[in-house]
């Protein structure tokens, strides 16, 4: 796997077990700085496991292999250290947190990350200015800011809130875990546009999706197909189109000649 750009994330021979069951069985992946990679694959192929391991969720046991992020060993870091170093995961199922005001939460997150970088904390005014400017990214209405985190949000609002948080936190590496799931076509467009507007030379993204549909709007630099815990195929966006046409069934027959 070659990448013209300096390496942002490098995964080598990654084996991961959950509750004693091996889910990832040797994943290799290199994402260059500024690149957007898509991970596709059937249900149960290990897509979400990959996302959760990168984010640092407990209960995902790495039995072999490594993940390096900006040249640093990622695995010993706690989830918050990873976030502070610039890793962001947009959740497939954003968690509802009653009683925790969206703005209050975001301010705590922004300031935790600023402290880590040795920057001064934002006061209430500067912070409001920052987040108001970001609302447009996903056309989010301001009244969602004063509500509890994700509580009572529609499916679309939850996903928009994830991308909004990404816009505010400005990560270097974002994992978008099935951000398209549960969205109708209008919401999908808005979210995709938001994600596109956040593409940058110094920011990489890993877009995890079951359907090709999202990739009509977010054109990836590379597409990887995850199957039974391994990357079975890698290619450009044509690979996604092919999957759309042929489904995932052909993967079971092993890599095709064209892909080799």
């Amino acid at each position: 796997m070659n990448s013209k750009n300096p390496i942002m994330l490098e995964i080598k021979g990654l084996h991961v077990s959950v509750e004693g069951k091996e889910i990832l069985k040797g994943v290799d992946l290199v994402v260059g700085t500024g690149e957007v990679h898509a991970i596709m694959g059937p249900n149960g192929s290990g897509k979400s496991t990959l996302a959760n391991v990168i984010a640092g969720r407990e209960g995902y046991e790495v039995t072999a292999g490594s993940i390096r992020y900006q040249g640093q060993d990622l695995l010993p870091l706690s989830p918050e250290e990873r976030a502070q170093e610039g890793i962001f995961m947009a959740f497939q199922y954003p968690v509802e947190i009653p009683g925790v005001n969206n703005t209050y939460f975001l301010k705590a997150a922004v300031n935790a990350q600023r402290r880590h970088r040795g920057e001064s904390e934002l006061d209430a005014m500067d912070f409001m200015q920052l987040i108001r400017a970001k609302l447009d990214v996903v056309h989010m209405s301001e009244d969602l800011l004063s509500r509890s985190v994700n509580e009572g949000f529609s499916g679309g609002e939850k996903k928009r809130n994830e991308i909004f948080q990404m816009a505010v936190l400005e990560p270097k590496f974002a994992v978008l875990d099935e951000t398209d799931s549960g969205l109708d076509i209008d919401a999908l467009k808005i979210v995709a546009e938001g994600i596109n507007s956040l593409r940058a030379e110094d920011r990489s993204m890993l877009v995890i999706t079951h359907y090709q549909r999202l990739l009509d709007y977010i054109i990836p630099d590379r597409v990887h197909v995850l199957s039974d815990g391994r990357i079975a195929e890698s290619g450009d966006r044509d690979l996604a189109l092919r999957l759309e046409k042929e489904g995932y069934a052909w993967l079971r027959e092993g890599p095709t000649e064209a892909a080799q």
């Binding site: 984010a55 640092g56 969720r57 407990e58 706690s78 989830p79 918050e80 990873r82 976030a83 502070q84 962001f88 995961m89 959740f91 954003p94 968690v95 947190i97 939460f105 975001l106 705590a108 997150a109 935790a112 990350q113 880590h116 948080q165 936190l169």
Partner: peptide
């Protein structure tokens, strides 16, 4: 976990 993923 959600909050820690945002840096807290």
């Amino acid at each position: 976990f959600y909050l820690r993923c945002r840096g807290l």
